[in-house]
Design a protein around this nucleic acid. Sequence first.
DNA 1: GTGAAAGCGCTAACAA
DNA 2: TTGTTAGCGCTTTCAC
Lengths: 337, 337
Amino acid sequence: MALASTKRVRIYDVAQAAGVSIATASKALNDTGRMTEETRSRVKAAANSLGFRPNAMARALIQRRTFTVGLLTNDTYGRFTLPLMAGVSEQLVDHGVSVFLCSIEDDPALAKIHVDAMLDKQVDGIIASGKRIDRRLPVDLSQLDIPVVYAFTDGPEDAVTLVSDDYQGSMQAMQWLRELGRSRIVHVTGPQTFASVGERARAYHAVQGGDGLVMHGSWSEAWGHEAVARLWARKGDTPDAIFCGNDQIARGVVDALRERGLDVPGDVSVIGFDNWEIVAAATRPPLTTVDMNLKELGREAGRLVLALAEGKAVEPGVRKLPCQLVVRESCGGGLRS
Amino acid sequence: MALASTKRVRIYDVAQAAGVSIATASKALNDTGRMTEETRSRVKAAANSLGFRPNAMARALIQRRTFTVGLLTNDTYGRFTLPLMAGVSEQLVDHGVSVFLCSIEDDPALAKIHVDAMLDKQVDGIIASGKRIDRRLPVDLSQLDIPVVYAFTDGPEDAVTLVSDDYQGSMQAMQWLRELGRSRIVHVTGPQTFASVGERARAYHAVQGGDGLVMHGSWSEAWGHEAVARLWARKGDTPDAIFCGNDQIARGVVDALRERGLDVPGDVSVIGFDNWEIVAAATRPPLTTVDMNLKELGREAGRLVLALAEGKAVEPGVRKLPCQLVVRESCGGGLRS
DNA sequence: GTGAAAGCGCTAACAA
DNA sequence: TTGTTAGCGCTTTCAC
């Protein structure tokens, strides 16, 4: 441990201390070249005791590899990018790769500035992420000379794209409701313009049949309330389960049902989507919901840019990553087998 | 616009194209040295048409300045770091500075890895941020040779530290309630162990007097419910206003009051803290609350590391940044003057 | 097995 | 006004 924090120690200092040339020192430290084991360990010991840290800039200049990647996102405040970022960071830090955070706020000019900055800094690759899997970032990354991976945002045809599997996740939800004996299931979800809304509805219909009821509205608690009002105003059977397009709607639904004197999950099971902790856990009863595993998606994105950066071949196309059911109390049923 | 994305263009190519030496090219592009305006613009034109982008690595190697900073945070999923990061990024991108995102999850080993990686990459400075202003990150940054700014986390005595002004924010809240004619104000807040809880209570007492009632619990909606139950179970006067320690508690309080048939804000005014959109806006009625201006705090942190990195002197000590009252409907009253 | 020398892309003295 | 030269800190042939 070098206590003196005067000047940064360079490989020259290590070489001096070990009584070798800097060439030998370099080879010793990088486990390349050939030399006696004794020399190698002597150099390493010297480096160690001097607290030598190679200058990544100098290294990058030669190796054309900076061990940095850029993470572009337009979901600055959102709940989607955050776990995704954590996953990316977690995956890459183990490989000595650092992540540039670039929030672009849907602003093309800002996006360009960030991309240019990344390019100047010679990032080894870029991960583009967003808040909707059916929207593109306001910048064209397809002509860059470095690898790009799209995560939770739409990418070009021949790109490597990672999204969560809305269909599979919704199937989990629906099947869970069926396993619990629910049959009159209604789907209360977001605006039809979202691709994921379509996917989730498709899964709903696959289980419930073509005559199931899908209600579109906003992604809000208010819409959950309103949907319940409409459902219970109709004549005929009321549902015994409601599959909601997200946790906010689900919370609105649960609150509305309780206000009507209905028991959740006794009278009606409610299931959400997103597993947004703050919403799902605060609902009374806490929401059973579908988690999109965004952190894992982030890890995978990290893994893939890294592979690409190392010149490995990666099959282009859209990869759908599985969602996972998180069982709490709003559907009844115990821990999932 | 160079369409051919074959090889990166270097300053050598620009010099060739402009018919000058690389030294002249360098000076022309950096607006240093002296030469005819004609030469300078000729070089710039050549650079432009070739799509020249200087290699930041090479530059960094000489200038000892990488135009990167590291942002350390242990609040990976949290609502605090996110706007803060956005502010930092926004502030720095204008200066050509990129931000390394490092989420350390309260793990000392992970923190060290990240810090080492940043040091290797020669960041110009580090911003340390967290989720509590009275807790330190699990890593010692005080002995580094580069500037460190602490934002929304506790730092050493002689460091530059940025926090939001809980006292001032709470004063805003309390005064707003008084302006609306409320006098029997109760403070329902989080655990006493939080420094910000103490600060907010201090402001509460400054307005309400020493005999005001402060109720400590968890930062949850459930605690909001419970607090209301307790308050209305007491004999004697019930409050006409409740100042809550955060928005979640406030939401619990509002819901509990409504469930008791009380009108908010007609019978009781409720005010929150944090302005956590998802909670504040979904509450019925939407919460009037205190915003900590974390994005601005992030910007200021960016400004300060940058100043420090440029060798400018910055007065050490704790800087408290003002909060801002966000008026919605839970207190009554109109737009603030 | 080890070291001298060239060079990554750029900037900055110093000459011319 | 412009160009030559010497590095920044490191890796990597290629001699010895």
